[in-house]
Nucleic acid binder design. Structure first.
Lengths: 127, 127
DNA sequence: TTGATAGTGATTACCTTTTATCAATATAGC
DNA sequence: GCTATATTGATAAAAGGTAATCACTATCAA
């Protein structure tokens, strides 16, 4: 049978952090933010919770090339990301140009999904 | 002064492998292919050569999220990649929809460049 | 309140990719 | 051919991120 899940301050703090963000976070970011609520929180618990939240379908993994996986709520719908080269933060984008993408692939190639990442300077860093 | 470079069978074999490919290769792929020409080739030499070729501007790095860096000739011009989920290979794409991308970013965000990755099944794997 | 046990935190172990080491070898100028 | 030294290959070891361990703690049904 499935393992009985218990509600803990740690998991709640982690979920709250993920709820309040505008983009995907690194495990370390989550740890640093959630520790404000639960000072004793260990990094291992962050990894464990992320794993559980992923299995439960509440959180998904976002990967920027060359960087460690980030995590965000999975109920945001289809979207892509912007990576600020200045501060390193990743932001969610609202729109998608997926329509034009299908015909990028050569004949015989079946496109099932895609990833778009914009790079540049975020609002805070460019002002 | 700059270090004197010498021509070796190893470097030539690595460059030849990179010249003949249709997409970026993993260091391990390069090693496996180049070893046909120079059987004694060690993986360390592949890494060293890739580093040198990058510094010389002849080779650039391509990263697919969640995977190790791949390498390809840097004279291919602007293009993107297709990752086959079946065989794992990465292929170059010829076209780009960069035009529509600028307005994906919110106001205040400066987009300097972008990455597009298509996922699916390549021609060989889908037939 | 109590007890069974899921969860935690500190730490260690791990895994994969990449780099450093170093003796041996190959290159290129003379 | 000879020599100085750049390069190589096998190996060890680093680096970064993640998972396993284990004694202790917290949760929650009874």
């Amino acid at each position: 049978m499935a393992i009985e899940r218990r509600t803990t301050r740690q998991k709640e703090a982690i979920k709250t952090v993920l709820d309040e963000q505008k983009g995907p976070l690194l495990p370390d970011d989550i740890h640093r933010l959630a520790i404000k609520t639960v000072p004793s929180l260990g990094i291992a618990t962050v990894y464990r919770s992320l794993k559980n939240l992923q299995e439960e379908g509440l959180v998904c993994c976002v990967e920027i090339p060359g960087q460690a996986p980030r995590y965000e709520r999975s109920d945001k719908g289809h979207h892509h990301h912007f990576h600020c080269r200045d501060c390193g933060q990743v932001f969610d984008l609202q729109k998608c140009v997926a329509g034009g993408l299908k015909n990028l692939a050569p004949a015989g190639f079946e496109v099932t999904d895609h990833e778009i990442i914009l790079y540049g300077t975020c609002k805070a860093c460019s002002s």
